[in-house]
Design a protein around this nucleic acid. Sequence first.
DNA 1: GTGAAAGCGCTAACAA
DNA 2: TTGTTAGCGCTTTCAC
Lengths: 347, 347
Amino acid sequence: MPIRNKRAPTLADVARAARVSLKTASRVLNGASNVRQEKVSKVQAVMARLGYRPNELARSLMTRKSGTIGIIVANLANPFVIEVIKAVQQVARANGYVLIITSSEGQPEVESAEIESLVRRRIDGLIIAPASSGPRLSSHLLPANIPTVTFDQLVRGTAFDSVIITNRQSASEATRHMIAHGYRRIVAVGTRPYLYTSKERVAGYRRSMAQSGFEARECFVKHESLLTAKWLEEEVLRGEAAEAIFSLNWVTTQHVLRGLRDLGISAGRDIALISFDDFDLGEMLTPGLSVVQQPSDSLGRESARLLFERLKGDHALPSRRIVLQARLVIRQSCGCGVGGTLVAGAP
Amino acid sequence: MPIRNKRAPTLADVARAARVSLKTASRVLNGASNVRQEKVSKVQAVMARLGYRPNELARSLMTRKSGTIGIIVANLANPFVIEVIKAVQQVARANGYVLIITSSEGQPEVESAEIESLVRRRIDGLIIAPASSGPRLSSHLLPANIPTVTFDQLVRGTAFDSVIITNRQSASEATRHMIAHGYRRIVAVGTRPYLYTSKERVAGYRRSMAQSGFEARECFVKHESLLTAKWLEEEVLRGEAAEAIFSLNWVTTQHVLRGLRDLGISAGRDIALISFDDFDLGEMLTPGLSVVQQPSDSLGRESARLLFERLKGDHALPSRRIVLQARLVIRQSCGCGVGGTLVAGAP
DNA sequence: GTGAAAGCGCTAACAA
DNA sequence: TTGTTAGCGCTTTCAC
């Protein structure tokens, strides 16, 4: 029996009970090879008997490794984000790391506060979907010795590893697809125009519109709460002003779908729609939602890989950028397969 | 300038630079009142100048409080789970705590491993959706001094605080609603029959069926991967054997919807359907999905509240159980509003 | 008000 | 192969 009855047993308690030195007990704990088998068994037996639980906090203090990875996302409700987290989680677990997940709610101030909190907890690495593309996420917040990988948004003027997708190209492709259906009054709808992803997707959309000689029109709200049916009707639809909508992100699509329904307009039938980002039941809608699908699993996996490469190995690698291919998934809402007017030669 | 150029500045560095004692610096850090204002300012100035970041790990070692809450869920993909986490996260953040989120994948062995990992990291509290209702989640895994709240599943023979919902009653209500539509061949479909939630929901379903003198029929798969279109056709539908389906959880509904579509059967039109658990776009399906909606936000909030009550105050409170009311949300797939055969007197 | 000393539970660097 | 001695960065006595 350990002397103190209340406190959890420490390695010292174990060592005492096993009649070995603290260091020997420590060696057994860490699976060091240079301990006599006999003592190993004895120490392990005592550990089991006492119900010994190593204190990772104490270990971390000494090793300067907390075994935790921070991950900051903008919106936990977004299934894309969840899939990324799941992938990161898998890699982290396989490496014996644990994830501290927080959300910035897309607000740079919250993001800063969360970073500070994580740094104080001495995370070994950070994976972050930045809340803004501006220079807020700067190195004065993050100590240089915390490897960081950004995903989704790209932050100007930083040297973080990053994983992004083909925003511009995929947006262009989606737009081209709608154009091939014969639509020319295609409106891009989105939130937070100042984000990197928004800008890139708009650029892709514009490129395709311009190539066909059509006029691009973008409707943005600063925050999704402003994306109401009324706004849709007055700003986007404007009577006959829109034949098709290109929704620039998940939360936008959600609000656009609800708004159109409230207006008695069938998304995909009365007006064509392609969404950047998919839904759990996107295929089950009628008509099925045509989407640009982000490779969320690879995105998480690659982000984690980049991070662990720095963690395990060389801290001084040059900063790397990975661009993953997003995929245009054609279902019906784009105009395909609902007696739509798909023009010959369409994708 | 601190002497060591490489290492992050410590409180000792701060104290030295500010020409005060370590303890005074510590007092300033913790906002103690008994320090002369002059010194407070000085220390704070030095902290800012040096870019000092308190090491929470070191503090935790001494205070025996890590400022972290563990949360273990069965499936991060489930939006219900995510909403619970979001609510818990909010409360945790408001209390200065951080969340370590892990997933058991519904497997008791993984759950045990995750618990062990969290205990070693000295979480201050645990919120867990148990992977099984059996006695696996027992106190030999969890030290008695780690307050724990379970939600979703109820674990037999433990004294944890818990937050659950009206599984039985709500399942009964949903079944009654379908019966009122005139259906009598209503089949309950689900996964993992051994779970508390499954049993309760089945019990509610059976009660309503029995009250109307109808024969209850349940179709279970052990794992969702077995829930294929073929299985649906052969085990659930069996020709005309099913007029309505009561899907017992989120993942089941997802597979049932896909399966029915693959069979060319419209869920809600050709066969009635009520789902336990809602979807992001549940309302946007055609017909709209009728569901039992769990109060996920309250569930998370209440779980967190129970936990923090123990954390902040009395550890020796008697164990409490909170039962929250789930809500039957009638859209169309139950038979309402699609020219269904709703019988007079239906809810 | 302030500070010196001790110690939280572990590992690192040495010596034996 | 083993043990001893220092710490890691902070908080907590308990003196002054």
